[in-house]
Amino acid sequence: MKVMVNTGTSVIQAFYEKKGSTLKDEYRQSAAVAFMDLKDMQKLSLKSRDKIKIKSEWGEVVLYVDISYDAPHEGMVFIPRGPWANIIISPETYCCNVPTYKGIPAEIFKTDEDVLLVSQLMNKVYNKYNLDDDKLTDKPVYKKRMI
């Protein structure tokens, strides 16, 4: 199904972000969510907390779905800002320094794939250090040493 994506701050996502618990499931549950119009959800036979894959020109990511509180118009999806939303938003600044966070055309599909935790997501999408996915969890991974 074709949709228009808007991203922005949500209080709940901001709450966990500032609390400093971005690696944990509670942050994933608050930020890796596509808030949709109920009618759109019915079209894809989606229930709350089912999973979708969302694809834009810039990338694709798996998210939970939930019913939007603001009951937006059909065809509109809201995703709280964060590492998941970032993957599909447009970097285009139109020479005005601000990337395009709102109004991104995208397509959504129902899926059974997993919604990744922050550490796994960053490793999978950017793969800077080529780490072993199984070792990445909801805790910081680092080596201690005696100083």
Partner: peptide, 26 residues
């Protein structure tokens, strides 16, 4: 990691990146 578009972040893979902050984040 929270604020920039993915396409923009991709450049950070290729260059040295330093963080000064209080918490472990994306």
């Amino acid at each position: 990691g929270v604020q920039f578009p993915g396409y923009t972040i991709k450049h950070l893979i290729n260059i040295p990146t330093i963080q000064i902050d209080t918490h472990w984040g994306p």
